[in-house]
């Protein structure tokens, strides 16, 4: 699709911005808005040695880690919630294959704010945790005046590239969310380059009718990729539920590296891209996710 803004591009064009060794931010929240089409695209391309800065997430950081694309990852929270611990992240962290930069909510919030404001670091309260012990570069004791509460400095977070998923966008690149925006806009302000997948493209008039849904205005986006079911097997709030059956398949396939490699070969590294992925999941299974019948 050729558009006036030039921001709507195909997957390969968008992902060309991601180079080996970069720091990559990931938006969304646990199973919500995980930019999975972008993640699958990066894995298919075989990108290496990434440093991840995921917002609290699940299958997006877990799949990149399981595919061997990651050298180190910040961990604020990586969980499969009711389906257990994030299986590939867990295996990589326990074996030491991936270095974990332990973080917490205030650390990522303060770091992103500093990044968005072009400040060298943010100041957060020292909450008496063990985080500074295991991540001394991420949490430094701050100099404070006599009598002040103890504070920590957290370095600015400025991802080279940020991956997001929204529900719809117009051709100028205004991205609308039907659910919460989580850290996505703050991360977009802090990142150097923002790639956002959306499930569909809509006319500008649709966006103007409900401008409050625009969580990422066009000025904060560099590239938009239109990929139906691009958040699968996570959920795209308001459009489709998370695919519990496929997530269970994923968890079962993650029991060891060999088995997970077979999963990736079947679903991700088959050369067919997103159309082949959707075919493999199946139209009927995808349609069932849009019925609202799976929740709660």
């Amino acid at each position: 699709m050729k558009t006036s803004s030039g921001k709507i591009v195909d997957l390969a064009t968008a992902l060309a911005a991601v180079k080996d060794g970069m720091t990559v931010g990931i938006g969304g929240w646990i199973f919500h808005g995980q930019p999975m089409a972008l993640i699958r695209g990066l894995i298919a391309r075989g990108v290496r040695d990434l440093t991840l800065v995921p917002a609290p997430g699940s299958v997006a950081p877990d799949m990149l880690i399981g595919a061997g694309c990651v050298k180190e990852t910040a961990c604020v929270f990586i969980s499969f919630e009711h389906l257990g611990l994030a299986p590939n992240f867990r295996r990589a962290a326990q074996s030491g294959a991936v270095k974990v930069l332990e973080m917490d909510g205030p650390g990522i919030a303060g770091g992103l704010r500093a990044g968005a404001c072009d400040l060298p670091y943010g100041l957060i309260p020292d909450l008496g945790t063990d985080l500074p012990k295991v991540n001394p570069n991420g949490y430094r004791k701050a100099r404070v005046q006599e009598g002040s509460r103890p504070l920590l400095e957290v370095p600015a977070i400025k991802p080279d590239v940020l991956l997001l998923h929204g529900q719809q966008a117009d051709e100028e690149g205004n991205v609308q969310y039907f659910g919460a925006g989580y850290f996505d806009l703050l991360m977009a302000q802090a990142a150097k380059h923002v790639i956002c997948s959306v499930d569909r493209i809509v006319p500008s008039s649709t966006v103007r009718q409900s401008a409050r849904l625009t969580k990422i205005p066009s000025a904060f986006v560099d590239a938009i990729v239109v990929t139906p079911f691009g958040a699968h097997p996570g959920c795209s709030p308001g459009l489709y539920d998370q695919d519990e059956a496929h997530l269970k398949t994923y968890v079962a396939a993650s029991r060891d590296q060999k088995s997970f490699d077979s999963y990736l070969d079947a679903f991700v590294r088959n050369g067919g891209g997103e159309p082949a992925y959707r075919d493999k999941i199946g139209a009927q299974a995808l349609a069932a996710l849009t019925s609202g019948g799976a929740a709660p």
Partner: peptide, 21 residues
């Protein structure tokens, strides 16, 4: 041990702040 844990959990998220504040 954090460097080589027997069980890697999900992480801290807002727990530090909620317990602390």
């Amino acid at each position: 041990d954090h460097a080589k844990p027997r069980l890697r959990g999900p992480g801290t998220v807002g727990i530090s702040a909620l317990c602390g504040l």
